[in-house]
Design a protein around this nucleic acid. Structure first.
Lengths: 208, 208
DNA sequence: AAGTGTGAACCTCTTCACAGCA
DNA sequence: TGCTGTGAAGAGGTTCACACTT
């Protein structure tokens, strides 16, 4: 099955909300409740669930436990996937700390940096290696996904190494856009752009 | 003029590339060059520039300096906009550090936290206040945009305070979705979702 | 020949409108 | 009545195809 990007994003978010619900002892949830918690519409929620072929018992809302399982079967990799974080500055540490233990099927198994104060230490709970060991470690530890949180100048060469090492997916938090072959899934997030975007649409409101 | 969201994002990115070009002494750039640097197509670049009504002198490529100005007139606020960062953990510090001095028309003028080791200190170059002073400072310093980098549990109440204080735009980096009235422009970025999205599309490739 | 500008087709995503079910 | 599931319409975004300029 080929799910739309936006639906995959929302499913990931729904799942966390559903886990929260279960923790609070709430076993069923209506589409409009889920919608309200995610700033979207009940129709959107139902459409997403329709796309994954999940169906409720009509009047009672969706069964949280069941739905969590269905989403997991779709978006998790069966035996999990290994992740590396490259660049253990504030951003790399923030992501690592946020992430650890949150998603059982995605394990951050290595960190990389060039700073000798970090290399061969444990940073934010993860073993940190020198960037020159990237290729070797990616192969040895079967790492599929890399998160680039290095200084922007380093991003291009890191990306090149990652591709040569057979990485499958890259999440680039750097302000430098990178180039990868078709076969590598690339997601880029540019903070400066996000802030400028907010500024633009704010300005717009000020005017109108 | 009402530009599409995606175009605004790309313009922000083009502008930084153009500044780089100028620094390297390159005064003109073709649509296909800009496209290659941004992983998109020449048509897309030309379409974006068409939307902002900018036109080259045909055969020579686009004038970097001119284009930077045109983009600036469209996406910058004339007298600049003030920004606050709420939560000075790793993520807040990362964003602040990345950002300082990069965009002359967007100034981070205050940081907020609850940790007494941070409050009333200068963190990453920014004055840090206690979150309980949020409302007061937002009004006093004419802050239009807030970046939430607090722990997820705190996001909802921070958002509420921000709205009450008359904030115009919010960038939420927390994994908790927040709710704001129509009049506030909200942009959310969820790291866990981004990583899960990459994992999903990687998995897809492994299968297919 | 090698670039730009753009109408129209296309694809993706969201919303409307409504039938069906408990 | 109050919810779910879904065809069809609509909005937003990208790409095609081609005329135009130097």
């Amino acid at each position: 099955m080929k799910l739309p990007e936006k639906t995959v994003e929302r499913l990931s978010e729904y799942r966390r909300t559903l886990l929260d619900c279960l923790n609070k002892g709430k076993t069923h949830i209506y589409s409009h409740e889920l919608a309200r918690l995610h700033n979207n519409t009940a129709v959107q929620v139902r459409r997403d669930l329709m796309l994954i072929g999940y169906s409720s018992m009509k009047k009672k809302g969706y069964d949280a436990k069941e739905l969590i399982d269905v989403i997991g079967k779709l978006i998790d990799h069966k035996n999990g996937l290994n992740v590396a974080v490259i660049g253990m500055g504030n951003l790399g540490r923030a992501i690592t700390t946020y992430f650890i233990g949150k998603r059982p099927k995605l394990n951050i198994v290595a960190a990389f940096d060039v700073d000798s104060n970090k290399v061969n230490r444990v940073i934010s709970g993860i073993n940190c290696y020198h960037v020159k060991e990237l290729k070797e470690k990616i192969k040895a530890s079967n790492i599929s996904i890399a998160i680039i949180t290095s200084p922007p100048e380093a991003a291009a060469s890191i990306a090149e190494t990652l591709v040569m090492s057979g990485i499958k997916g890259i999440l680039n938090f750097t302000t430098t856009p990178i180039n990868v072959p078709e076969s590598v899934f690339l997601e880029e997030f540019d903070m400066i752009t996000s802030i400028e975007k907010v500024a633009y649409f704010v300005k717009d409101q000020v005017k109108g």
